[in-house]
Design a protein around this nucleic acid. Structure first.
Lengths: 121, 121, 121, 121
DNA sequence: GTGGTCTAGACCACA
DNA sequence: GTGGTCTAGACCACA
């Protein structure tokens, strides 16, 4: 369910955060589902529990999971999350578009680039 | 001409690289213009010469400037640069769009977001 | 009568303690009323009996209930309890006000904030 | 400037966060002041650098400091911070007042308690 | 078992 | 020197 890409330059905890966000946003994980315990996931991925702990802390801070001490971590009510995530994505997009405009790229060029670019992956 | 934002989380050398790229792409700096010496710029910005050196190395690697030993650093022929920069921007855009698609955001939503978002700056 | 909010960051036993305190202070439970047995409540709430046991121990320690071996747990004489509870609340309030004063917030600002804030619930 | 109270039940990192918040809010530390490096403060307080690191991360997340990699941590522009902190305090106050109201304590009692309570510390 | 905090210490990028 | 990430492992509160 969760995997780490060691060629990815990003820190491990950040990758873990992103994987869970996508699993939740795409509806693979549902509200109140229990996610793996810090220790279990650490063993599964062969990484240190502290790193998982940090990822879970961040997921909780961002509202994707909630923690019940002594019980485990659970998926939050996801209804609001997709909206928030879209806002994040759009904010990133706007930042890059701003850069693009500064370099003289037009809005139309960008839209054309996106129109054509989806098949890329 | 060049300034540093210490509140920006990015490393200083990266900020310096970006400023020069934009100055060149927007035509403020022209082909074969001499840019400040490593030492002068370091003094002007009150930062370590190593940091400027690194930024210039990166700019040279990316083809934005060329170095003439004993003479200084000069802006490259910019005709190809804008195309290359656009490719970089599009590559970043595609990366984010990919994330968006993975979370179930549609191409139309993204385009609408960009259409509306330009006034932001 | 008693419920648990798993999204509440506080430990479960603490939530149970608080619910009973409020039920007693607000007169829903009266002196010498029998409260549910540890086992029954544990089954009802689907939680570990140890957790209920711990909550009841804490309620007894604070004087809200008393235990009769072989009979069950009963609500204490509540006449003194409200006074004690008010003292607890005031102590918490004073702690926060102290923090506020340390940050330069004035007594008047606080009182104004409370005056206006009541409608919040 | 910073000290730890080992009798305080709160975690060390939380105490460090609070001390710095108060120093900044009260104007002891000013915008762009450098705060001690992670390692130095760890040595001074005889605690682990990771604990300080965590406190600084939290201070940055809350907007009290900003980090320049390789340079150190610096106090943010504090003009907005006091407002935000007041909101936090008022939110806590409202939560407790709500509890108080639920137990039948009146607004007047609370205000009287605060009026009289300031001298307490 | 489960998460939360902390210590001790390594290695990296950046300045 | 300075922060960022990570490992290894301890001890605690809670369930």
């Amino acid at each position: 369910m969760i995997f780490i890409d060691y060629r990815d330059a990003r820190p491990i905890y950040e990758q873990v955060v992103e994987r869970f966000k996508l699993l939740i946003l795409r509806g693979v994980l549902h509200s109140d589902d229990k996610i793996p315990s810090v220790r279990n996931l650490a063993v599964d991925l062969s990484i240190n529990p502290n790193t998982i702990q940090r990822a879970y802390m961040e997921l909780e801070r961002q509202g994707y999971i909630y923690t019940v001490k002594g019980k485990g971590n659970f998926v939050s009510d996801s209804s609001q999350l997709l909206l928030k995530y879209k806002e994040e994505i759009f904010s990133e997009l706007r930042k890059i578009c701003k850069e693009a405009f500064e370099a003289g790229i037009t809005k139309e060029e960008i839209i054309a680039g996106i129109r054509g670019g989806e098949a890329d992956d």
